[in-house]
Design a protein around this nucleic acid. Structure first.
Length: 436
RNA sequence: GGUGGCGUAGCCAAGCGGUCUAAGGCGGCGGUUUGCAAAACCGCUAUUCCGGGGUUCGAAUCCCCGCGCCACCUCCA
């Protein structure tokens, strides 16, 4: 298949290094708050990618970290008067619940603080190789020294001068150069810390991903991904640290997911324009959320508004109506045509356009092929038509009223159900409903 | 200021040199159906792709110049 590689800025032919098993590392949550739809988009895209790899015959070893120690967790723990570990546990649990609801494939989730040893070892190697220096219990990565050997900025395509030009923050006085970044931060009063050869302290932001990815996947591995906002500095620094420590190639392909926007602007906590994943899951099925998030191409920004979930509820209902009870044989030709679309840099918009067109077919094999592929890509049919006892009794009541021509009552029941976001359809085969 | 990207119907969003008088979803309009509805089904809904030049037999797609927007350069998926 072909994938767009941020490293080379073009689509390239992709195959797993060992020919069978794709090794992927995705930057996961910093567990300091509830995941919002923007986070969910990234993880939905990667779940879709893993599932697609499986369909075309590759195994996947996916690692997605939880960063459970960082400035914001510490800050929040101070604000709330709650131990930082408790906060991290709370939001890790929230993420796992959401992942389960979303029908994500189970993958490995290492935690930063369980890899302090590996992190320290990696920093020691970087120091040995001369790309870092110790100052007052801090360990800084020397961007200039590293850059002379390997070139810094290969991913973000920025020159050192470019980066300096935009430097907006007061450099830390213990840094030799404003571009340098922290590998290890000296302990501050009241903050969590671990012992290290440089004194008590904690890891810098980027190093945990370098340590965990190389430990669990080996070097080099196939794909490293995350939100587009991580390209600089996070991913750039991961590359520098890993090469600085090992001299080896890091990830071959870098895949970055576009941002979820509201009114054109990035969804983020600071802009207060975010919509929580758990809110969406309260009211809409995972199918709807999955479809909505994948209906745009993964590399483009995607506009979000709450009504979009309503729109996609309707769209998914149509598919569900068509496919839920279908059985047949797989049309191999059709199957490979549809998969070919996805082989081109995961062109989900084109793929779903075809799905909706083909769903109008009367041919059982065509419909079953769609159902087969979509199910393997994480959708669940039938789910929205499960009988619910209370609902069924209400429908029986309404049916009785209709038989007595008590349309006033029948309409009242329909109206109430509508308010509860259940829509009724009277068909020759009886009353159907759908939850929207 | 630097770097990267985007601007396609009411909204969302593909297409990236010919099959484009531009996919698909939502919405809207008309019809079939219905106790009335809804759903479903059928039909219609951009001769045109931010503006202006250019390259080409041919451009939404390539190049140049404007205008507008976004992201990153500070924590961020």
């Amino acid at each position: 298949m072909r994938l767009f590689n941020t490293l080379t800025s073009k689509k390239e032919e992709f195959k797993p290094l060992d020919g069978k098993m794709v090794r992927v590392y995705v930057c996961g949550m910093t567990v300091q708050d509830s995941p919002h739809m923007g986070h969910l988009r990234v993880f939905t895209v990667f779940d879709f990618l893993y599932r697609f790899f499986h369909i075309i015959g590759w195994d996947v070893k996916a690692v997605q970290n939880f960063t459970d120690i960082d400035d914001k967790i510490i800050q929040r723990s101070k604000e709330e008067g709650v131990d930082w570990r408790e906060l991290a546990d709370r939001y890790e649990y929230e993420y796992r619940e959401i992942a389960k609801r979303m029908n994500f494939l189970p993958i490995f989730h290492p935690r930063a603080t369980q890899h302090i040893q590996e992190i320290i070892e990696m920093i020691e190697k970087i120091l040995e190789n001369g790309y870092a220096y110790v100052k007052d219990g801090n360990v800084w990565f020397s961007v200039k020294r590293y850059s002379e050997k390997y070139g810094y900025g290969v991913l973000s395509k920025m020159s050192l001068d470019d980066m300096l030009a935009g430097a907006r923050i007061e450099p830390d006085p213990t840094k030799e150069d404003p571009l340098d970044f922290a590998l290890w931060k000296a302990k501050k009063e009241g903050e969590p810390y671990w012992p290290s050869p440089w004194g008590e302290g904690r890891p810098g932001w980027h190093i945990e991903c370098s340590a965990m990815s190389s430990k669990h996947l080996g070097l080099p591995f196939d794909i490293h991904g995350g939100g587009r906002d991580l390209i600089f500095p996070h991913h750039e620094d991961e590359i520098a640290q890993t090469k600085g420590a090992t001299g080896k190639e890091f990830a071959r392909f870098w895949i970055h997911v576009g941002l979820l926007t509201t009114e054109g602007e990035k969804m983020s906590k600071s802009l207060k324009n975010y919509f929580l994943a758990k809110e969406a899951l309260q009211d809409f099925s995972p199918n709807v959320i999955r479809l909505m998030l994948l209906y745009g191409h993964y590399r483009s920004d995607l506009e979000f508004y709450p009504d979009k979930l309503v729109e996609f509820s309707k769209a998914f209902s149509k598919l569900n109506e068509k496919l839920s009870h279908i059985h047949g044989d797989i049309d191999d030709k059709l199957k490979s045509e549809l998969l070919d679309i996805l082989k081109d840099d995961l062109n989900t918009p084109e793929f779903f356009a075809n799905v909706f067109k083909l769903a109008e077919s009367e041919r059982k094999d065509t419909l079953y092929t769609l159902k087969y592929i979509l199910t393997n890509l994480g959708f669940k049919f039938d789910e929205d038509t499960k009988e619910d006892v209370v609902l069924k009794r209400l429908l029986d009541l309404r049916e009785a009223a209709r038989k007595e021509r008590n349309y006033e009552l029948a309409d009242k029941i329909r109206e109430i159900l509508r308010m509860a976001r259940v829509e009724i359809m009277d068909t020759p085969k009886g009353t159907k409903y759908r939850i929207f």
